[in-house]
């Protein structure tokens, strides 16, 4: 069952990190409104392979909006025109027959392009390795219910923990800042009693690593919150700033 939408795609093609890239125009036809945006790209790639051309490289994996791998900048918006969805959960019914759609990779100094629409987001992992955890070795835990946690705190912590690490916040931010990402992890742990022991050291070393990776500063434009597919709130950035200030003042020299 194919559909009846005909579209013009302008897709960023870049052979590798060293080569210069450019937008290349491709027509695609018979697109069904029930297709996901990535399935539309499958159609394009099938077409390119048939024409003996190289298919477009793009990141994707779970295709159900949770792994955070997909990362397309569509018509100037991270993950496309709809709010609160990842690219893989964007469906073609959100577009109209005859549309021209521009697709680019995430653009940020700290996310270099690997190929076409694929970028390197390993900076996020390095930030987490600087404190985005609670230091508890396996086998040291007490009974889970020995530590009651008010539902409201647990829920807030969960909301922050829902971040999928896709990087849309960075791609959207005019400064290429990773504050929303970092603040989500800092908040998740700051809201829980288990996270208190390392709270000061955590926020400082995660923020330092963020700066070292070349992410920009936060100027509170709030664009990140708008584009976040998981609705991570700006409140987390406020919490991070509070945690950071406190930790800096109280830091033992």
């Amino acid at each position: 069952m194919s559909g009846n939408m005909n579209l013009t795609l302008k897709v960023w093609r870049q052979k590798n990190a060293e080569k210069k890239g450019e937008l290349v125009t491709y027509p695609v036809s018979n697109i069904s409104p029930d297709m996901s945006f990535l399935e539309m790209f499958d159609v394009l790639n099938e077409q390119l392979i048939t024409e003996n051309k190289e298919p477009v490289a793009f990141d994707h994996d779970c295709r159900e909006g949770i792994c955070g791998m997909c990362s397309m900048h569509i018509n100037g918006r991270a993950h496309g025109p709809k709010d609160a969805v990842t690219t893989c959960q964007l469906h073609m019914r959100s577009f109209s027959d005859g549309d021209t759609i521009v697709v680019e990779p995430w653009r940020a100094a700290a996310f270099p392009v690997i190929k076409d629409l694929v970028v390197d987001r390993s900076a996020f992992d390095r930030i987490i390795s600087k404190g985005g955890y609670i230091s508890v070795n396996t086998g040291n835990a007490q009974d889970a219910n020995n530590l009651p946690i008010p539902k409201i705190d647990a829920d807030k912590s969960f909301e922050a923990a829902a971040c999928i690490g896709c990087g849309a916040c960075v791609a959207t931010c005019k400064n290429g800042s990773a504050m929303l990402f970092v603040s989500a992890k800092v908040s998740q742990l700051a809201l829980l009693p288990q996270g208190q022991a390392e709270a000061k050291q955590r926020v400082i070393s995660m923020v330092n690593q963020m700066d070292e990776e070349g992410f920009g500063s936060c100027t509170n434009t709030g664009a990140c919150e708008v584009e976040c597919p998981k609705g991570i709130s700006l409140e987390n950035i406020a919490r991070l700033n509070r945690e950071f200030t406190l930790a800096s003042i109280l830091e033992e020299k």
Binding site: Y133, G139, A141, Q142, A144, K151, A154, F158, A161, Q194
Partner: peptide, 22 residues
């Protein structure tokens, strides 16, 4: 049972009741 203990200690925000219990 130890798995749940371990995950909670790591800061995994599992669902809770109003009394704070899992």
């Amino acid at each position: 049972g130890s798995i749940i203990d371990q995950c909670v200690a790591q800061g995994v925000p599992l669902a809770r009741e109003y009394g704070g219990m899992l």
